[in-house]
Design a protein around this nucleic acid. Structure first.
Lengths: 240, 240
DNA sequence: ACACTACTCGCACACTGTTCGAGGTGACCT
DNA sequence: AGGTCACCTCGAACAGTGTGCGAGTAGTGT
């Protein structure tokens, strides 16, 4: 059992340095560039070092290990989700949801990391704080503040992760949407034969040509609005 | 650009074989055991081969590569989520949500895979079909069937993934909840100083001793009910 | 007896994260 | 000016990874 104590970049004190040559921020920036350009699998310490004109092992002075680097890089993703400071709770939640969604779209590699890596960085915390503030001001009370906020975050993550993972796996494999359909078609008609609901809907899609990307966006909107409505009744139920 | 065509285990025809020695199902079963016992990082082809008393490369006859193995193993997770065949839409959605949540709890390694790996296996499709049937019977019409269903799935994933990832990272690091608090405390009081909402809530938690695991479950229930309520109004808005 | 298919597997390759220890380089103190 | 020390870089090495290749084996059909 090699259980090491819990640790996160954000729980360790940062080294005060002379700020010359490599720097942590520079490394993180380069890592994001590399990730955006070539994806998660392409991020290796050697490649990252090379991109910075440095040896791979030099990075280990500025960053404890790759996991910490990834935590840092993830907070860079959260920097893209800005929540307005003084807005109604519905607007704050909406803006958050769409900003989060966009941030993951902008950095597709983050889809497989986003719920899994601890989000204790400054940007993640700022976003949380803003969102929470909106719910508090709206009149949610006690633990309901957390519950309502968690619900919005959960929905947003759960909707975004598969969506981004899907389209970026398509992009990575260079498969067009029609090619995909050709690949999926046989297994659908075969496997779905005793799954009547799935089969019917699948066939109805194949007929009409409704851009699936647009459909996804509408689905996101639909679910988000439904959730916010549900939260709204809970708010009114308490305050009057 | 090494773009390989899109492929999934489920899109390839299965080899018909003599069914002796190793078999695909046997491999998948052993992989699940290994994953449950030692986690995602511990799954390597060599280890898995050893566990089966076989050479590592023998596995490649039955499975194209590790990615495909993981798709297979993921469908094994979906086997745990059974949706009742003839139930009201709210009950079907609830049962699905809790079953899904439980399945991921039972196989914590799946948290980092679940939205990312294509879910085209038989078990995943059966669950989808059952859930979809419930929404159709309830009276959702046209594209709303998908939207409503997607919303429930999204919320469930988004709530479950971070929760399971969190507690299983705690378990892996052997850190107790109080130790964690000791680690997080300094960064909270420091970083949260200009994040007033976060700080206040954090402190109010630290005082009362409310089991965080129970809180999470209640949060899951809260958000799910809110979402279902919101979907319900959309249903009534159409049919009556 | 022959052929053929279904399978197993050792070797090898290119790659990974990370440790260690030897070096360099500049800032500060005496 | 010389010395000391913290800060920083990096090559070598280790233990591991996924997987292609080609040789080898075993069981079935004719």
């Amino acid at each position: 059992m090699s259980a090491k104590p819990f640790s996160s970049v954000w729980t360790r004190a940062r080294k005060g340095g002379r700020e010359q040559g490599l720097s942590r921020d520079q490394i993180v920036r380069a890592a994001v560039e590399l990730l955006d350009a070539e994806g998660l699998d392409a991020l290796s310490m050697r490649k990252l070092g090379a991109r910075l004109g440095a040896g791979a092992t030099s990075l280990y002075w500025h960053v404890a290990n790759k996991d910490e680097l990834i935590e840092l890089v993830m907070d860079e993703v959260y920097s893209g989700v800005v929540v307005p400071e003084a807005a109604g709770w519905r607007e704050a939640a909406s803006v958050f949801a769409y900003a989060m969604r966009q941030a993951v779209f902008d950095h597709p590699w983050s889809a497989s990391l986003i719920g899994v890596v601890p989000a204790l960085g400054p940007n993640a915390l700022t976003a949380s704080d803003r969102l929470m503030g909106a719910f508090v001001r709206a009149g949610f009370e006690g633990i309901d503040v957390d519950y309502a906020m968690t619900a919005v975050v959960s929905y947003t993550l759960g909707a975004t992760i598969p969506e981004v993972a899907f389209i970026s796996s398509l992009k990575a494999s260079g498969t067009s949407m029609t090619e995909l359909q050709a690949a999926v078609d046989p297994i659908m008609t075969k496997l779905a034969s005793d799954r009547p609901n799935l089969l019917e809907r699948y066939q109805s899609y194949a007929q009409q040509d409704f851009d699936p990307l647009v459909a996804r966006r509408l689905a996101f909107e639909f679910g988000l609005m439904a959730l916010l409505d549900g939260l709204g009744t809970r708010l009114r139920g308490v305050s009057g």
